[in-house]
Write a protein that binds this DNA or RNA. Structure first.
Length: 272
DNA sequence: TTAGCCCTGAGA
DNA sequence: TCTCAGGGCTAA
C-alpha cells in the first residue's frame, strides 16, 4: 500500500515527466473515483500547464497553472502510470490524462478503488476534508512537538501513528517498522511512553522513512513506480509481513496481533 | 474508541 | 466458496 515513501517516489518521478507540460485531454472512465464534481475535471484541466508537483501526507498534489490543484490518493492499490502502450488501460484504469506533444499518458489505475482524485481551487474550504485535517509532516515536525502530540494520549501507540490527523504519511508498514526500530511494543499506550522512547520513536520514524524513500518504497502487492518498476524497501522490512519468521536482530519469532482492525507485526523480545 | 463498510484478487 | 489484505470514513 502506498504510504509516504511510495508517494514521495511517485512525486519525484512525476516531476521528470509532466512538470511544465500542458494537459490536452481528460478521459474519465470511472466517475466513482472522482471526489469532486465531474464537470470540474472536464472544464478545469484541458489546456492547463502543470506548475508544481508535491506530496502532502499520502496525497499527491499537482498544482496547475491558474488556481486549480489535483489531489490523488492511491488508497491501497492505486497506481499512477506513465505509459504509451495500451497494456495498462484495462478495466482498472479509471482516469487518463493526455499531455501535449506526448504519446505517453498519465493513467490512474486502482483495483480496489479505495483511492480517488479531487480537485480544489484557491478556496481552502474546497479542499478534501482528509487533506484539510492532515497532521504535520514527519520531516517537518520538531521533536518536542512530536512528543507533545503523543504523550497525553491514552490510545495505543500503533493506532495513533496510523491517525493521519495526528501525523501525516504513516501507514501500516512504516508504523510497524518504525516501532520496531524504536523498540516499542505496538500495544503500548502512548501516555505510558517515556521521554526516551518518544525520542527514539521520533528518530525511528524519520530514519525509516528516509531509508524507504532511498529504496524507492516497498513493493508488496500493487505498488509500482510510474514506469512499472518495483521499489526495493520490502527486502529490508524487519517485521512487517514477517510473522512467524525469526527476528533479524534476536531470532525470536515475529508475532502478529490485530489492533484497531489492522494487523501489527512485532518482535516480542526487541519491542517492550 | 471501535466495528463495519467500501472493493477486488489471491490463496486456502 | 470463503477468508484475508487495509486507508479512511461513518455510525454506534
Amino acid at each position: 500500500m502506498p504510504e509516504l515513501p511510495e508517494v514521495e517516489t511517485i512525486v519525484t518521478q512525476l516531476r521528470a515527466r509532466i512538470l511544465n507540460r500542458k494537459i490536452s485531454e481528460v478521459v474519465i472512465r470511472t466517475p466513482a473515483i472522482l471526489k469532486s464534481p465531474r464537470s470540474l475535471f472536464e472544464k478545469k484541466l484541458p489546456g492547463k500547464k502543470v506548475d508544481k508537483i508535491s506530496r502532502r501526507g499520502k496525497f499527491i498534489r499537482i498544482d496547475l497553472e491558474g488556481e486549480n490543484t489535483l489531489w490523488f490518493h492511491l488508497g491501497m492499490t492505486g497506481q499512477l502510470l506513465w505509459r504509451e502502450d495500451l497494456q495498462a488501460l484495462d478495466k482498472h484504469a479509471h482516469l487518463i490524462l493526455s499531455f501535449e506533444a506526448s504519446c505517453e499518458r498519465l493513467i490512474f489505475r486502482d483495483i480496489r478503488k479505495f483511492g480517488g482524485v479531487a480537485i480544489s481551487n484557491g478556496n481552502p474550504e474546497l479542499l478534501p476534508t482528509s487533506v484539510r485535517l492532515l497532521g504535520p509532516e514527519p520531516f517537518e515536525i520538531q521533536q518536542d512537538d512530536f512528543a507533545a502530540l503523543l504523550k497525553k494520549r491514552t490510545g495505543i501507540i500503533k493506532s495513533l501513528l496510523l491517525n493521519q490527523r495526528l501525523l501525516a504519511g504513516l501507514g501500516n508498514i512504516y508504523a510497524d517498522e518504525s516501532l520496531f526500530r524504536a523498540g516499542i511494543n505496538p500495544r503500548k499506550r502512548a501516555i505510558r511512553l517515556t521521554q526516551l522512547e518518544l525520542e527514539r520513536l521520533y528518530k525511528a520514524i524519520r530514519e525509516t522513512l528516509r531509508e524507504a524513500i532511498a529504496s524507492g518504497g516497498s513493493s508488496l502487492s500493487d505498488y509500482i513506480h510510474i514506469n512499472g518498476e518495483s521499489g526495493k524497501f520490502q527486502n529490508k522490512h524487519q517485521v512487517y509481513g514477517r510473522f512467524g519468521k525469526p527476528c533479524k536482530k534476536c531470532e525470536a519469532s515475529i508475532r502478529r496481533v490485530r489492533l484497531a482492525g489492522r494487523s501489527s507485526c512485532f518482535c516480542p523480545q526487541c519491542q517492550k
